[in-house]
Nucleic acid binder design. Structure first.
Lengths: 340, 340
DNA sequence: ACCGAGGATTTGAACGATCAAACGCGAGTT
DNA sequence: AACTCGCGTTTGATCGTTCAAATCCTCGGT
């Protein structure tokens, strides 16, 4: 039972200020149409009554909910959900600056399209922010076909672009990692990546290959399925094989943790004997016993940019066109795992 | 610009089925008031037109937004936001089962009360879910004074209880940790905790003291400020001092990581020579090189329970009274840091 | 003194749903 | 035959805001 006292409305403010509803509305939405002294009187009444426009009523009339939909995924038990909470916070904050709020929902079916349809049908949101993008993600096309405004965090990696996006330049990030260990004197630099076909993984790999070519190194690529154990196993094979690498650049921090373990198990010292670089700069990277050098994504910037892109698509006044494609540059955080 | 085609409304469904608006409304909200054949006809029309009730219009009339407010805090840079993303997911999922959605917001000022007031004034939410509870949290009293429905994840730890809450029994969790290492043969069991005055910390400490008394051990409590470095420093002092402990029970995983480092630095082996137990079972606890035994909070259960408590307070039909106080029991996840 | 222009303000309608009350109608009662 | 009862259905009003058009008012021009 919510506190029963009905709050002030446009009408009560109007009565207090001795004007009509519409004038109060104008003071809020188009102040230049109101005479200065009238405006002052109305603003005083608004403050006196502590009036705030009823969001729902406004939404009904304007046909805009000022809500952005965001799907939260169940965090897989063993995974280290590295970045998404920071992304969500940045998005929430940036949206609030323009009077928008985030509406969270979960998906119970496979692709979650039913939930998107449901929210659209209810007109609960004005647009969506897509994260956890996968290769061949059906959501982009589905939304575009229905003219639903959205922005994607992560490229779709398939065919032509569908809708605006913001992403982090994984290729450049990996290339920087390679150049970093190269500068430290390493020449046998291996790459521990995901199986082919993952957009993010292929992107990061391409940066490794480009850097090797630039620096005159022969690339050495090893792939493992997602997860700590497979990464550990492949790294162990590398270290036990002929011409073991002196540096391992990994597609993810999880793989890097596996590599660190494999190195330690062999009595070698990370950073000293074998350098390791991860990707994502997960919170655990800075922990003692780990101290992993890692490529950090500018995740707050990504969130803020995504909001600007979406709000512009929604036609929100005061939001200039930020463009439809944003490739952000990551930065390398250097720690002990690459300190000789 | 959202796709312009106006969706179907109650009126259009009514026209298609040859009945009045209200009958369609009744089919949705009180099906037993409608004759079976009429109902079938209306339901067919609803399906044919793919009609979904306009959430905003319904909210305006019923004076209920079916939204729950949740404040997301900026994750402190070095911290390992352990549990809250899982909590948010559980809450979102449980709320959706009753047609409620989560509305996210951030707080820019100190206590964030202005944001709560703003959302209430706009009538954007029906109630709040409070997390990140601190000692003397002003939000509980503030909300209670205004008769705003809410539920708190975390007790307020000050004076009498204000409003319903869900929390994890930290005392029992810590006591179990002590009993666990006791069963492994340890007798000099130290506790590494936060400064006095933190509700959560004092709760966990009390479990340590109770267990010591039960088991006939002399308690040994050391306190450090939050953060990896202070925890590491205090653990080092313990190990270097007279009668060093053979087991260290920590108030948090972060302290446990510091203790692990201190142990490793002295050439001792965690688990083998000195046992360590953390609290929260953060994702990094399972990483290689860490393998930390830790007390895990039943966070999904907490989220689902919190939603039930709040929805009951809101008078949502079909939600039985779950009670106003829920103390959930944590479980110990045993790993190498306590394996002899 | 009249008229038209233009800005400030007000009025009526609408957004799409639900609430409260009225209505139509057949069955049962007197 | 008139009257009541109850069920199923419909009608009008309403939630609080904004849109579109009407109205009021002032002022300058002829």
């Amino acid at each position: 039972m919510a506190g029963g006292q009905h709050g002030p409305t446009l009408a009560s403010v109007a009565a207090a200020a001795g004007v009509s509803r519409q004038t109060v509305s104008n003071v809020l939405n188009a102040p230049d149409r109101v005479a200065p002294d009238t405006r002052a009187r109305v603003e005083a009444a608004i403050k006196a009554l502590n009036y705030r426009p009823h969001r729902v009523a406004r939404s009904l009339r304007t046909q805009a909910s000022r809500m952005l939909g965001y799907r939260v995924r169940p965090t897989p038990p063993g995974e280290l959900n590295p970045v998404l909470d920071r992304f969500v916070h940045a998005v929430t904050d940036a949206a609030a600056e323009h009077g928008f709020h985030l509406l969270l929902f979960t998906a119970d079916d496979d692709d979650g399209l039913a939930q998107y349809a449901e929210l659209l049908g209810q007109r609960a949101v004005d647009g969506f922010i897509l994260a956890d993008t996968v290769v061949g993600d059906p959501r982009h096309r589905w939304l575009a076909e229905r003219d639903v405004p959205f922005v994607s965090f992560g490229r779709t990696w398939q065919g032509e672009e569908v809708g605006p996006w913001v992403d982090v330049d994984g290729a450049t990030g990996t290339a920087e990692a390679v150049e970093h260990v190269y500068a430290l004197g390493h020449r046998r630099i291996a790459y521990l990546g995901w199986p082919e076909g993952s957009g993010v993984g292929d992107d990061r790999l391409s940066g490794y290959q480009a850097a090797c070519q630039r620096l005159g190194l022969t690339p050495r690529v090893v792939r493992a399925e997602q997860g700590m154990a497979p990464g550990h196993a492949r790294a162990a094979e590398l270290l036990d094989g002929p011409e073991p690498p002196t540096a391992i650049v990994c597609v993810s921090d999880v793989f890097a943790y596996g590599a660190l373990r494999a190195i330690a198990e062999r009595g070698l010292r990370p950073g000293h004997d074998v350098a390791v670089v991860g990707f994502d700069d997960t919170p655990a990277a800075g922990l003692p016993g780990i101290e992993l050098t890692s490529v950090a994504q500018p995740i707050e910037q990504a969130g803020r940019t995504a909001v600007r892109v979406l709000l512009h698509a929604l036609g929100v006044p005061g939001v200039p066109d930020p463009g439809r494609a944003h490739l952000l540059r990551p930065t390398l955080t250097v720690r002990a795992s690459t300190s000789p």
